[in-house]
Design a protein around this nucleic acid. Sequence first.
DNA 1: CTTCTAACA
DNA 2: TGTTAGCA
Length: 96
Amino acid sequence: MSEVKSTRPVYGIAVAAELVELPEATLRLYERRGLLVPFRSPGGTRRYSDDDLVRVRRVERLREAGVNLVGIRRVLHLEDENGRLRQELDDADQTG
DNA sequence: CTTCTAACA
DNA sequence: TGTTAGCA
């Protein structure tokens, strides 16, 4: 398997902002509001993974649907939890 | 690059 | 409510 993890932290905030076509300040705001938690380098700078960028695009899609940031945070939290539970079921299937 | 604050839509 | 500009 080629170890190409989409969770690998690669982009600085300037590059990430360019890729998702959003201001850097907006990415920082999303993080402060709990929509996103990008990796932090030892120096304290944000490192966005491809998964993070996908998550930001999901945020924008929800916004177009009229959901505010608080609502989006709850949606993403439920999606995270759902995915985690699904993973546990999948693991239980393999072992049990 | 970081955080915070104040002004604006 | 969310974005932007400016400061430290």
